[in-house]
Design a protein around this nucleic acid. Structure first.
Lengths: 167, 167
DNA sequence: AGAAAAATGAGAATCATTTTCATTATCAAC
DNA sequence: GTTGATAATGAAAATGATTCTCATTTTTCT
């Protein structure tokens, strides 16, 4: 579980957790609905780097009547308000993660699809310098590395990769 | 015009240019067709970083009967054979460029859409080191910077941006 | 020229995402 | 607590990029 914003009480009951989520929703100036609560709850407790479809399917277990339009809509709202950030890898569906983590980038295993995160200040500095040298004021960047993770390196020579990132 | 592969003759006539293109097509083991010639010609002489739609529209002027399936198909074939490489920026349509250029990355102006290229060996080295430290063997990467170009910085304070990269 | 194999184009299919719009839920004011 | 203006929802249609299907046409080899 990812600490979303600093907890106000030292004991996190389910109720206080709900209050947290409501606070986020109100913060962005929209109404609190069961669907929005469910979506936030899912992203909070589920795994990181989920797609809209994954959120939709997971939430549907708890609230079968939710529509995917609602999920897409709210994920968009959350990214617009910097609560979440979108990670777009190649032409694949967008994945979402909490935006209030430290800045970091991703490395994806081209064999098993596993995603690891890393931070590197040196690279950040270089990027700003490069942008400046071309006359640009840097506002954002995407750095996605692709490689073969240690597990898959060991497995190499066995069956062909089950997943291909780049079709 | 981008030098595609080293010219064999010192004077590039239209005919020898055609021969060049044919050679590329045959190299990848497919038949030479008017459509494929037109597509290659267009990419060779047109601007860099084109989308499949742009290639399709431009080629259609010369060869009105071409279908977009053919364009997409051949662009895919060319990227599969490393003649072209695909640049995917956010969720936008893929753009294509010659793969035999030196490796480089892109910086996109979020205001006017202008794309500049750069190379930085330091960043390449850091990427490999980071990947290794996480147990990955690096095979590929995407580095896309976003910022405001010098022209648009000057223009700031005027009209709102005509283009938005991220809708 | 003739035949086998590959390539084409039109349109349908797909996939992720967004929009539309009629119905339903929320919340601030009574 | 009821009410009502307003926003949110879900179903389905729309969109945009890309891929696939398949009947017809080209290419290339002989």
């Amino acid at each position: 579980m990812i600490p979303l914003i600093a907890m106000e009480t030292s004991h996190h009951t389910l109720a206080s957790n709900d209050q947290q989520l409501k606070k986020i929703i109100r913060q962005i100036g929209v109404k609190v609905t069961d669907q929005r609560m469910a979506i936030l709850q899912e992203i909070l407790s589920g795994s990181d780097h989920v797609t809209a479809q994954e959120v939709y399917e997971n939430v549907k277990h708890k609230a079968p009547d939710i529509g995917f339009a609602t999920v897409y809509r709210f994920l968009r709202t959350l990214t617009d308000h910097k609560i979440l950030s979108e990670v777009r890898i190649q032409g694949l569906p967008a994945r979402y993660e909490w935006a209030n983590k430290n800045h970091h980038d991703h490395i994806t295993c081209t064999s098993c699809g596993r995603i690891s995160e890393f931070e590197n200040e040196q690279i950040e500095i270089l990027q700003t310098e490069i942008a400046a040298s071309l006359g640009y004021q840097l506002t954002n960047h995407i750095l996605e590395l692709y490689g073969v993770c240690s597990d898959c390196q060991k497995k190499s020579g066995q069956l062909p990769s089950p997943h291909r990132i780049i079709s």
